[in-house]
Structures are given as C-alpha cells and as structure tokens.
Amino acid sequence: MKIIGDILTTTRDELPDSQGASITYLIRKANIPHGRISKILGTLVSQGLLEQTNSDGAFKYKISTTGREFLQAYNTFNKFADSFGLTI
C-alpha cells in the first residue's frame, strides 16, 4: 500500500517532464525491483489510477484524475491510521 502511495505521489508531484515518469525514474524513486514495479504499474493502469503514454518507444506514466482522488483519500486515511500507530 505504501509503495502505491509513493508511486502515485511521484507521478503527481515529481514528474521529470510533461510526458510523465519513465519506469527507470519510478524504480529509482520507489526503490523496488523492475519485475515488481511492472506488475504494480500494470495494476494501477488497469484500475485507472495511472495514465500510460508511449513516448519515443518507451512507456511513461502520469497520475489520472481518479488517481489524484485516490491519493487524497490515501493520505487522509493514512494520517488516521497513523494516529493509531498503524500504517495502511
């Protein structure tokens, strides 16, 4: 759950260019292996939380409107869970 939050936050706040963030950039930011992040990105795209674009033969990722709403809810409820000493 935290990884998803980190990926969505990166694609919202720390985009290297307007096309979106590449897998390599996200791997460096989220610090997780390629195989795992590919699966997570696939799930996030299929759920409509990320938008995938093809730029110069490489996939790039940007947060969608649904993703922004999810991230807002995630941050709010993360604070709530944090009050109980828990992480969501």
Binding site: F70, F77, F80, A81, L86, T87, I88
Partner: peptide
C-alpha cells in the same frame, strides 16, 4: 474507518 476501507482497500482500515 469503513469509508477509508472502501476508498483504499486497506486491510488495516478493515481491522479498525
């Protein structure tokens, strides 16, 4: 917590 669970699918929020 239930609203949080419905929005995020977090098992922690389900337990809460």
């Amino acid at each position: 917590a239930a609203i949080g669970f419905r929005n995020t699918g977090s098992p922690t929020l389900f337990r809460l």
